[in-house]
Structures are given as C-alpha cells and as structure tokens.
Nucleic acid binder design. Structure first.
Length: 798
RNA sequence: GGGCGAGUGGCGGAAUUGGUAUACGCGGUGGACUUAAAAUCCGCUUCCCUUGCCGGAUUAUGGGUUCAAGUCCCAUCUCGCCCACCA
C-alpha cells in the first residue's frame, strides 16, 4: 500500500499544468463568463507570506469551482512592482530596482506555481514594465486632456535631513518621525487628479455595490458630502465679504460671531494696529502645528481680529475671531458661529465671553443638553420663521438667503483631489514637459513610454525633486520640434493599479491600453478579493472606471461586482507577523516540511470565516493533513473496502455533502465546506462506500486540494465536472422527531419518513410514543405545534 | 464624542429563514495494533450532580416578546473597527 506523499503528487500535476495550460482563458467565448482576481501583490524580497496564500487560496477555490461548473473563467495574475522598498534597496546597494524587481517576481512566480494556483500565466503583468506603464502614462494624458489632471501649488511637510516630503501623519511635534529633525513647510507645485469631479457619483453608487458594509461606510466617510449653504457676511466699515459654509442655515439668526482659520487670506486685512501683533503670533504658532496636533488639543484657543461682520438676518454686529478649530482645508475656511446650537462654538463663546442667542427650542421629551442643543426643534428669535420646525424650514431658508442675495445653496466634500506627484525615482514618470517659459506640454502619445532610465545614484536631494532631475541628458526632450525639460516627478503607485484589471483582459496589446471589446466581455470583475486598500485603491479604481466610461472606452461604471475583503493571518500569539518579532511563518517551509500545498491551502481556508482575522496554529494544520491523508487512503488504500454499491445512508450523505459544499462555496463559506468534506470522509470510513463516493469526494475537494483531487480522479478515470444533487435523494427512511414539552427537549421519536408529511398523522404518532406519554403524565395538553420541516413537535402542557 | 460590528467549551470555530446549541478541527484522554515508538484505526471529551441512568445549568450580564431565543426587542458591561474641532 502506497503512502500519501503530497510533494510527489503535487510536482507531477504542476508539471502537467505547466505543459497543458488548462487555465488559459478564451476571450469572447459564447459562454457565461466569470472574471476573478486577487489584489495583485507587491513582490517583496521576502517572498510570499501566509497572508498572500490565504488571499490566493480563496480566489483559487472559487476559480476552480466555477471552472468545474463549466463557466468561461478568467483568473489572471500580476505584480504591483513600483514602490519604496525597491527604491530604498537601490539607494543602499546601488543595484537598480529594475533588476531587483525581476528577481523578486521570479521568486513570487516560482512560489505561486509551487502552490498550484489555477492562473492563466499568459496574462502576467508588472506595473514597472515599460510596456505596461506606457499605458499608465497614456491614461494620465487622457485625464489631462479632459482637465482632470492638473497642477497646483500646495504646502507639504518637508524634512531637510531626509530630504523628502512627509505626510501629516509622519510629523510629530514639528519633528520628523524618522530622524527627529524639525520639519519645514515647503510650497511645491504638484500634480493632482480631479477625483472630486466624480464625488457625487462615487458616493451615490456605493449603496448598490455588493461590497462589505464596512468598506462602504469607510468610502462614504471618506467622500464626506455635506449639504448646506454658503453665506456671505459683510465686514463693518469695509468692502470685504467673508463667505462661510454651514450645514445649518436654519440657525442663521443665532449666528453671533465669525471664526476664520489661521491660514485664511483675509485675516491680515481684518487686523488693526492693536490686534496685529497678537494675531500674527497666534497664526505663526498654529501654522507650525501639524493638523494631527491641532486636532489632538481640543481646548479652544483663538484671538480677536478687531473687526466686526454684520449678520444679514438680524443686522447685529458679529466680532470676527481667528481660531485653529476652524480648518482652512474644509468649506471656505471660515464659519458662522452659532453657540446656542453647536458644541464647539458654545465652548468657544463660553471661554471668550461671546453672546449666545437661542433660536431653536429643544423639544420637551429630549434629554439633550439645555444650554447647547444641536438637534431639531421649533425656531424662535428667527423673524418670520418663528414657530416652524428647523428640519422642515432649512431649504426654505436657503431659498430666502438666495433671494436676498446673501448666499447660495452649497455642497462640500471632505474628499480632496488626489495628489499623485511623488519625488521618487521608482514610479511611472509623469508624461509632461515644460518649455523655456515654463509652460506645460503633454508628451505626445507617440513618444510614450517615457522610460525610466537606469541611473547611478537614486538618492533624492533637497531640491524637492526626484533623483531623475540630476540627469540632464534624460530631462532634455524634443516636443513638437521644440527643446523642453521633462517633469521629473513620478506617479503615485495607485495610478498604476487603477486600470490593471482591464489590462488583464488584453495584456499584450501594443496599440491600445485595452481593446474595449475584450474588456467589455470580461469586465467588470465578478469577484475581487483582497485584505487592504479599503478606501484609496478601491476608490481610485471606481473613479477611473467612471472616467473611461465617459470616454466611451468601457461600457460599465463600476469595476467590481462583488468584493471579498479577507482578514489577516496573525501569529499564534495574535500579534501581526513581522520579521522583527521573529514570528513569521514561511508558507513554502510548510509545504517543504512534507505537508504539501494542498494541506496548506486547505488549512488556510479551514482556519475560520474568510473575512475575519485568524491566528496561525502550527498544530491545527496537522488535522488538515490527516484529513487529506484519509482521502488518499480511501482512494489508494485497500480496494476490497470499496463496494459496488454504497450503503443507503452513505448515498444520502453523498448528496447532502454535494448540496452543502455547493451552497457553502456560493456563499463563500470555505471553512464549513471543508468541515462538511471531513464529515463525509469520516462517514465513508464507517460504512460501505463505492467508487462513486470517491469520485464525488474528489470533485468536491478539488477547489481546496486540487492536486490530490486530480490524482484521485485520474485513478478512477473520472472527469471533474461539478456533481449535482437531487432533493429526492436526501430523504431518509426514518426521521428523528424532537419533542419539546413546555419549551424543553424531552424526547426523540423515530418516525417513518412518510408519516411526517401530514401534520395530524405526525402528531398522532408522536403522542402515542411511550416516552412522550410519560412526559405528559396525563396532564391536559393545551397546545400542539407541529413543524414537520424542522422535525419538531412542541407541546404546551398544563 | 459619533457610527458600525462582535461577545458561544481549554482553544479556532458551527448553528444559512426564531425550531435538536457546542458541527468540524485542535488540544486532552482511554483503547486497538506494535518488542517499543511513530504513524494509523476506534472510543470519550460544555459544565454540575452521578459508577451509570435520570436530572439540572449554560451562547458577556439583566430584563422582555414567543409554544420555542445564540438568533428578535430594551438596558448594561467588554472588545474590535471606522470617523472625529468637517462647521
């Protein structure tokens, strides 16, 4: 008798798949299609980790399931290769990222193949390949042509030691988080994609998406639409006007002062000789703080400018203050303060003794704060609007404000335009050049790609430009017969991943980014699986879809039908796996220890619901190996145990298992599908099974353990077509009926199946049972509830 | 502070529409096989009382609806995630 040797079986089948290419997808075939993809990985030097394997195994199980269901399936694979690790490695070693990337890809590919994933390898792509980023640059130019890619000045945090831009989150107490040196604010001209042009559509279409609720909420929060009005306040003894955004125009009569953000450009015009010094000092301090710091300290601070505005509704004078609780980046950078109905304004008014006027009556049944009530209610002190309900009168008041010429209806968004400039070497160069007057010119499409040159030193300098700027031979370019200078910034890596799902459909097209006919056949992606990028990537890809649909190059407006957001795999102690903690599990180690790829993959699907984080358990993997070993032994062990015909109970179990595994795969419940297969195998060990049972077992386990499944199917000379079940085979001869008396389970009665169909007959059989009689004990039966479908009879006894 | 989600054995988890709570696996434990070990196979394994039966308790806590609640409703506690001075 042979022993289960996973590595022998797996290398045999992997060689065959390499040779026969059974996973190659056929474009435009007249068959229902299914397009599945995982979020493509960044190929790090460390190789695949167990998190990748979980992600890929989910997609693989579904890929094989739909292939066995005879759909036309596309499951491609690629690499998100631009990024900081390869560049930092290049700075340290001088080895070009191009070389390191190729090594890392080779390693990832080798590992993915060793795990036996059903990938169409002919469609492999890499974002740092000039053949790929040529078209990323082309996408940029399409956005540029439609004014959706534009340049703007913006303040960035700059570390003079690391010579790089820092994100707000990377500045602590005015110091660089890495080296501790004091950071500067640097005004830099940056490229942006105008994602806000699609803000409404991006928001409105979220509800209809078959995506996890958590992701949908995050995207909604991120876009952050608020509806309200922009109201202009005249400044006393001046021609200046101050525009403020408010979501509560109904509280206009209660606005008693204005507050401007420290960065607000009008502040310098509002100060006088008495207030200038104090205001300037306050502004200086506020500008030094990072936004994080400004938000951490919630104690209100501020200074009076010396000027007054006029409330147009009441004619009252409103002192104008400067305070850092008002943010320049939102709305107009100025607010009308309504201290009676806004907690922040209330706190500020209390601290600086500013007037508070109540304009909304708190309903009597409300438990909210009396002094500062931010809910809805009847208006008071509001002229003609007195007595009206605040929520109802809001739109009317906006119309009134518009009619008076004081302002207009306005919608604002929390989402900013997408800053895509990076002062880094290892990204797709922005395909732009500047003439001698500094005017912007697009690189003509026939001059793409703008190839990233291999250079000798990748270290950035303090010019705020990438290392490319130090290469005049590269930056010099002829555009339309004129000598120009190239843009030396590269694009955010998220630009490269914003269209790769379409490139997969037409990966080798030399003349187009994609052929719309091919993309419209495969896309939108039916199932997209990943465990990261809840907002950024998944929002950007939606933005580009809408844009290219408007361009007529796609005939759908949402890129992903169903999103599976899988959880992380943590170390045994529940902590994140990391090299520094030394708790990393290398998936290939598990394979090579003798467990094999089938065990690893099945284990990672059995570990728990796919959407939850899970803790790696080195011992539990042995249980999955034992399961596969039992499968092997059924097929390749003692043939005399395999009967011509299955026992009746086994046959019923076979169909039950087909139903359970099919339904579980349809609802992505991989862990329970594996459990059902384990139960089935345990059942086969205990009763008379036939080769039909083994064929069904192999077919059902193929999505999880494809190598062993193929080995078994080959021996039994069977195909892998997904088996079907018929409800009529699920009927057992005897049915156990559960009897509850006064809500407690008191008896189990075996009843012939045909007697359970009729409610009256079932009741009679159950009531005649000795044990039931004993439980009832001659007492009066008040009520009998018979639920044949649930195999249950519930008695209410006096 | 606001929003959302979760809480089930020693552990990971199952229970899909309100209908047998604890499937499946790990761990533990007893046995078979073996000179022995490993591997494999077969039991037992929520807790309490009990040799066993019978019985009782149990899905974070407290209440409620129902013939019936892990599941629905209310309150409380704990944890997780997201947002957060966004006007």
């Amino acid at each position: 008798m042979s022993r289960y040797n996973p590595n022998e079986i797996e290398t045999k089948w992997q060689a065959r798949w390499e040779e026969e290419k059974p996973f190659a997808a056929v474009d435009n075939e007249d068959k229902p299609k299914m397009y599945l993809a995982e979020m493509f990985p960044y190929p790090s030097g460390a190789g695949l980790h167990v998190g990748h394997v979980r992600n890929f195994s989910i997609v693989d199980a579904l890929t094989r399931f739909y292939m066995q269901n005879e759909l036309n399936v596309l499951r491609p694979f690629g690499y998100d290769t631009f990024g900081l690790p390869a560049e930092n490695y290049a700075i340290k070693t001088g080895i070009p990222p191009q070389e390191v990337t190729i090594e890392n890809i080779d390693n990832f590919r080798r590992q993915a193949k060793r795990l036996g994933f059903a990938i169409d390898w002919s469609r492999e792509i890499s974002t740092s390949d000039p053949e790929y980023y040529k078209w990323t640059q082309w996408c940029f130019l399409q956005l540029y042509k439609k004014d959706l890619a534009y340049q703007a000045e913006s303040y960035q945090w700059w570390c003079p030691v690391d010579q790089t831009v820092l994100a707000n989150e990377q500045v602590e107490n005015g110091h660089c988080w890495r080296c501790g040196s004091e950071v500067e604010k640097k005004k830099m001209k940056q490229w942006f994609f105008r994602i806000t042009a699609y803000a409404d559509e991006l928001l409105d279409e979220i509800d209809a998406l078959d995506w996890p609720e958590k992701i949908k909420v995050m995207q909604k929060n991120w876009i952050g639409r608020s509806e309200g009005a922009e109201v202009e306040f005249g400044v006393k003894a001046s021609d200046e006007k101050i525009g403020v955004f408010t979501t509560r125009p109904d509280t206009l009569f209660g606005a008693t002062f204005l507050v401007l953000a420290p960065e607000h450009p009008l502040v310098s015009k509002l100060v006088n000789d008495d207030t200038r010094r104090k205001v300037d000092q306050y502004r200086g301090e506020a500008m030094k703080k990072s936004e994080i710091e400004r938000q951490e300290n919630k104690e209100k601070t501020g200074v009076f400018t010396g000027s007054y505005a006029i409330n147009p509704a009441t004619g009252a004078e409103m002192p104008i203050w400067v305070a850092d609780y008002v943010l320049m980046g939102y709305g107009s950078g100025a607010i009308m303060a309504v201290p009676a109905h806004d907690e922040r304004d209330y706190e500020f008014a209390g601290k600086f003794e500013l007037p508070i006027i109540k304009v909304i009556e708190k309903p009597e049944n409300s438990n909210d704060d009396e002094a500062c009530y931010s809910g809805e209610g009847k208006l008071v002190n509001s002229g003609v609007f007195n007595g009206r309900q605040s929520s109802e009168v809001r739109e009317e008041m906006v119309a009134w404000i518009e009619g008076q010429g004081w302002g207009e209806k306005k919608v604002t968004y929390r989402m900013r335009d997408w800053l895509i400039s990076r002062q880094r070497y290892w990204g797709a160069p922005i395909p732009i050049a500047y003439d001698k007057d500094g005017k912007v010119h697009a690189i003509p499409e026939d001059q793409l790609p703008v190839v990233l040159p291999v250079i000798d030193d990748y270290t950035p300098d303090n010019s705020g430009k990438s290392a490319l700027a130090k290469h005049p031979e590269w930056t010099k370019v002829m555009v339309n017969g004129e000598e120009m200078t190239r843009e030396t910034d590269t694009m955010d890596g998220y630009a490269c991943s914003s269209w790769y799902l379409w490139r997969y459909c037409d990966p080798h097209n030399k003349y187009q980014a994609w052929d719309p006919k091919k993309v419209n056949y495969w896309a939108p992606t039916d199932i997209y699986c990943g465990g990261d990028h809840a907002v950024a990537h998944l929002l950007y890809i939606r933005f580009w879809t809408k844009f290219f649909a408007d361009e007529g190059l796609l005939d759908f407006r949402e890129p992903v039908k169903k999103l599976l957001y899988n959880g992380y795999i943590n170390a045994l102690d529940g902590k994140k796996m990391s090299k520094s903690k030394g708790n990393v599990i290398d998936p290939l180690d598990i394979v090579n220890q003798g467990y094999g790829a089938d065990t690893l993959r099945t284990y990672e699907l059995f570990i728990g619901p796919y959407e939850l984080d899970a803790a790696w358990d080195t011992k539990a993997i042995g249980g999955v190996y034992r399961f596969l070993n039992r499968c092997y032994n059924l097929a390749f062990g003692d043939d005399t145990k395999c009967y011509k015909i299955s026992a009746r109970a086994v046959e019923v179990m076979r169909y039950k298992t087909i139903k359970k595994v099919t339904e579980d795969l349809r609802r992505n419940s991989f862990n329970t599908a594996v459990a059902a297969l384990m139960e089935y195998v345990n059942g086969l060990y205990k009763d008379e099974y036939s080769s039909e049972d083994l064929i069904v077992l192999a077919k059902l386990m193929k999505p999880f353990a494809p190598h062993l499944a193929c080995e078994i199917l080959e021996k039994l000379e069977a195909n892998d077509v997904w088996p079907e079940w018929d409800e009529k085979y699920l009927v057992e001869e005897m049915v156990e009926i559960v009897v509850q008396v006064n809500g407690k389970l008191r008896a189990r009665v075996d009843v012939a199946a045909e007697k359970t169909k009729d409610v009256k007959e079932l009741e009679a059989v159950v009531m005649a049972d000795e044990k039931v009689k004993a439980q009832v004990g001659g007492k009066e039966v008040l009520k009998v509830i018979v639920v044949p479908r649930k195999r249950l009879v519930s008695l209410v006894v006096k």
